[in-house]
Amino acid sequence: MGEDQLTDSTTAAGPTIATGEARPAGRGVSVGSALRGTGRPAEPAQNTIFDVRGLRVFYGSFQAVADATMAIREHEITALIGPSGCGKTTVLRCFNRMNDLIDTARVEGTILYHGTDIYGEKVDPVEVRRRIGMVFQKPNPFPKSIYDNIAFGPRIAGYKGNMDDLVEESLTRAALWDEVSDKLKESAYALSGGQQQRLCIARAIATSPDVLLMDEPCSSLDPIATLRIEELMIELKRDYSIIIVTHNMQQAARVSDRTAFFTVDVKQTGMRTGRLVEFDATDAIFTNPREKQTEDYITGRFG
């Protein structure tokens, strides 16, 4: 059972983050040679969008994540699963430097984004967050109109183009335009939970990122709304790369292309540190995982 190593993947040429040039929305170039693994059909290699090496996260003296190394591919949905406290949300928030907002947080290791380490010295986290959007567990639209919610990101980034068109495009991509096109000036809070979450997705898309990070985006929604968002995610991966944290394993199985399983190690001191156990194609993880810990977790016998 071979693991697909991305040793010969090529990264798309693109401007570096530090210069802050504008990037078109998620149009990566897929170049690659077919890899042949044992017992697996050949898969075309895709570009790596995040190259994570030796990622460790500390809150003060408490280590939340131990040494994670993984490569996230473009135009795929990558799911991070695992029991509570395994660090999956912490890892997700590393990708857009949201952990910087926590005083005691310290991140070690590198995360290469299009070849540039986002934790490099000269890197401005604000720039990082403009290209890497985030959707949170509970929908959190601003107490503004639907229009202003979407326009917020572009406005503060100095967008000079036609805002009406941008708002319409974002809402269309988030499968929400038809439902709100006649009430753009109304408060975002008038929408249902599922609609608010799609609004948050549209808001994140409006800044033309090429990555969407989603932290349990459906956990506060009903099953129908959940299903719509899952279908939306699958459509969105054409233009974006998506990383999703979910505690719903069936959801990870339904939507993701690759799945990373994290577990939590409890030391004698009682410190709970998260650790990446296995990272593979989703169908492999759910039909024949390599690690017993993975098997135990996904069959519900652990965690």
């Binding site: 720039e127 959190n140 917020f152 808001r203």
Partner: peptide, 17 residues
């Protein structure tokens, strides 16, 4: 709510903004 601030930072806003 802190969630609103997080949303704002997530969109690439500076603290003052």
């Amino acid at each position: 709510p802190a969630a609103l601030r997080e949303a704002s930072y997530g969109l690439g806003a500076k603290k003052a903004t």
